[in-house]
Amino acid sequence: MNADEARESLAFSEYARKRARDDMSRPWLALVLLATLSVVSLSLTESAASLTGLFWAFAGPLGAGAIALYAYRRSRSSGIESSPLGYVAITAGLLILAYTAGRLGFAFQVPAVARFGPAIAVAAGFLALAWIERSWMVAAISAALLAVTVAIIGFDLSPQQSKALLFGLYGFTLLAVGFSLRVGRNLG
């Protein structure tokens, strides 16, 4: 094998890898769904904390199930399947982390943990999603959300204000990114 052949083979294998990744990539639905749930839960910010927890306890697994079902049907029709294990682990980890952070914050009377822990768990979950999807865009957005969340902790906001700000920020950012990924896919 000469240098040109080696270069050409490497380039072809990289093209094949990238094509497979692109055809399996579907972060837009996860983003749009989670964003929608975040925005809907905005309306619950004035309610008791248990109501928000109840909403997420039902909406979280339902949303994860919808994403899994979409991924399954999509892979069946496209002819390439990704392993669902990573997505299942991220969803389960995200829900457990968010719930645990909230409960621990209340139990140990640390309002900042109760208020911001779940948001940080969501951003960390999306960082993990970005790694699975090899998406720099999702990684950058997740890192920005993490940074803004940490910055908000420094402000002296009421629980309702910080909750509304976080859900609004997460909801609309992820919604915008999700739809832009969807539109980009259609244009591509």
Partner: peptide, 23 residues
Amino acid sequence: IHQRVRLGILAVLSESRRADFAY
């Protein structure tokens, strides 16, 4: 495997759980 198509087949499959013949 250093043949171009066979390298491509393994590259696609290494990124996925499985792929079908048509893909």
